[in-house]
Design a protein around this nucleic acid. Structure first.
Lengths: 113, 113
DNA sequence: TGATGAATTGAAGACTTCTTCAAGTTGTTA
DNA sequence: TAACAACTTGAAGAAGTCTTCAATTCATCA
């Protein structure tokens, strides 16, 4: 039965791997948000946003509820904030490492190695 | 200058979004590991593994050092373990939620709704 | 009821990423 | 130096994901 865990993990990370989806998840951390507001905050076509929202819905990480004429999205209770924090920390480390590398290369260059 | 943070994040998660890359990162959490051992542990062609290792290297999340005839990979100091833990937690929540949903559907079915 | 606004869907082509194959490095050992 | 082992690389087709467009749904308002 069932998908191996490392495969489920890979799919999960792939689901996160899109700038619009990241922005949506970050905005939803501030509280449930109507599509209208997401559209105002993110530079993206309505139909494109819908597609990305559909990906998040299918993954079960967000929920959509209709309030008469607007649809409101919310995080499905899971702790996305924590994940984003951790990702930011690692990312900062990685970018820092790259800067150090760049600095070394610059220095090496100055010494014309 | 520079890529917006949400885009860097998306790229970072995409880099994690492959079963072989996940397995490699998990194995490297146990300590530096020669390619040979990775190959023995993961069911993948050598050249395919190399391609995936190259992705991780380019991202700067692992380092490779050559010890005569074997190449040893290691985590580049960043706290990947934490990320994996968080991902597992969220994933567990999500899968649990899906099971509950399935159970509900089963019940509804039994009552022939 | 017909028109409008808000959001979603399906489908098609553009674009990326994956896998695989053959060829290339690098370092060791005979 | 030739042969070998351990990895890596480049390239090409297969597979998957993105964006966009036109069409659709759903609920309100005139």
């Amino acid at each position: 039965m069932s998908v191996p865990l490392y495969q489920a993990k890979a799919e999960f990370f792939r689901m996160l791997g899109h700038p619009v989806r990241i922005r949506v998840l970050e905005l939803l951390q501030l509280g449930p948000t109507p599509v209208r507001d997401l559209l105002a905050a993110i530079d993206v076509e309505p139909s494109n946003l819908s597609q990305q929202l559909a990906v998040l819905r299918r993954a079960g990480i967000v929920t959509a509820t209709r309030d008469s004429t607007t649809v409101v999205y919310a995080l499905a209770g899971t702790d996305v904030a924590d994940l984003m924090r951790t990702a930011r920390r690692i990312l900062t480390d990685l970018l820092l490492g790259q800067e150090e590398l760049l600095a070394e290369l610059r220095d090496a260059d100055a010494r014309s190695e």
